Amino acid sequence: MMKTGTSVAIAAALATLLLGCSSSRDDLQLMPVTGVVTYQGEPIRDGVIRLIPAEGTEAPVRVRKIKEGAYQFTGRSAVAAGIYRVEISAYRPVDDAAPSEEGLGVDLPRVQYLPKQFNTDSQIELLEVSNTDSEVAKDFVL
């Protein structure tokens, strides 16, 4: 059985740890980032955009869907100040594929079609978000 002093010390340490974690997230100022993504002059109809914090940027990775060319990092998915690597993937249905019936809906099999310089080996210009920005509008022309 633990002594009362040890129990109080452990409880105080845990409380400090929890308060430290929550206060840093509460203080994190988030800015909306929105825009349009096109590939070869056409909007990406179905895709994903990832913002990966560069070294020195203390923020979580952000991921949003691209629908009909548009993406939005808003509300709880808004972005903290810092520099981000951008990765973009785009999908199209597989030709002559039969729909799968997994899950709640019927999904068509799809394939990612962008070259790797836009995703796994991204050469897209880094995105910089400043804490003085109230909103960032950034289009990506691939």
Rank of each mutant, 00 (worst) to 15 (best):
Ser24Cys: 15
Val37Tyr: 02
Ala59Gly: 06
Arg64Cys: 07
Gly69Trp: 03
Asp107Phe: 12
Val33Ser: 00
Leu17Ser: 14
Ser77Trp: 04
Pro43Ile: 07
Ala97Arg: 09
Tyr39Leu: 08
Phe118Lys: 03
Asp95Trp: 08
Glu68Trp: 05
Arg76Gly: 11
Ser23Pro: 05
Val111Arg: 12
Tyr39Lys: 08
Ile52Ala: 05
Gln117Phe: 04
Asp95Glu: 14
Leu30Tyr: 02
Thr132Gln: 13
Ala78Thr: 04
Glu125Ile: 09
Ser122Met: 03
Val86Trp: 04
Leu104Ser: 10
Lys116Cys: 07
Gly82Glu: 02
Pro109Gly: 08
Pro43Trp: 05
Arg64Trp: 01
Val111Glu: 15
Arg76Gln: 14
Gly56Tyr: 06
Leu142Met: 15
Ala97Ser: 15
Ser134Ala: 11
Gly35Asp: 03
Asp133Leu: 07
Lys116Phe: 05
Val106Gly: 10
Leu19Lys: 10
Val61Pro: 00
Val136Arg: 11
Ser23Arg: 14
Glu68His: 11
Ala90Ile: 00
Val111Leu: 11
Thr57Tyr: 03
Gln123Tyr: 03
Ala98Ser: 13
Val111Pro: 03
Ala12Asn: 09
Glu55Tyr: 06
Thr74Gly: 06
Ser100Leu: 12
Ala98Leu: 15
Thr38Cys: 05
Gln40Ala: 15
Glu58Gly: 07
Gln29Asn: 11
Tyr113Thr: 04
Ala70Ile: 08
Gln72Arg: 15
Tyr84Phe: 09
Ser22Asp: 12
Gly103Tyr: 07
Val61Asp: 01
Ile66Asn: 00
Asp133Gly: 06
Glu102Ile: 11
Thr120Asp: 09
Arg110Phe: 04
Asp121Ala: 15
Gly56Ile: 03
Ser100Val: 13
Leu30Asp: 01
Glu87Pro: 01
Gly69Asn: 07
Ile52Asn: 00
Arg62Ala: 04
Lys67Asp: 14
Val136His: 06
Gln72Phe: 10
Glu87Asn: 04
Cys21Pro: 04
Leu14Ala: 13
Pro32Thr: 05
Gln29Lys: 15
Ile88Met: 02
Tyr84Lys: 02
Gly103Cys: 05
Glu101Val: 12
Gly103Ser: 05
Arg85Leu: 10
Ile52Phe: 01
Val48Cys: 01
Ser130Thr: 10
Ala81Pro: 08
Lys65Ile: 02
Pro60Ala: 08
Val48Met: 07
Arg50Trp: 03
Leu30Trp: 01
Ala15Arg: 09
Glu87Met: 05
Lys67Glu: 15
Gly41Lys: 07
Asp107Pro: 03
Pro99Gln: 09
Arg76Lys: 14
Arg50Tyr: 05
Thr132Leu: 11
Asp133His: 14
Ala80Cys: 05
Arg62Trp: 00
Leu30Glu: 04
Gln72Trp: 08
Val111Tyr: 09
Thr57Gly: 01
Asp121Met: 10
Lys138Asp: 00
Ile124Glu: 00
Thr74Ile: 12
Gly20His: 09
Glu87Asp: 02
Tyr91Gly: 00
Glu68Ile: 07
Asp95Gln: 12
Arg110Trp: 02
Glu42Asn: 12
Thr16Leu: 15
Asp46Cys: 01
Ser22Val: 14
Ala13Ile: 04
Ser22Met: 13
Ser89Ala: 10
Phe140Glu: 01
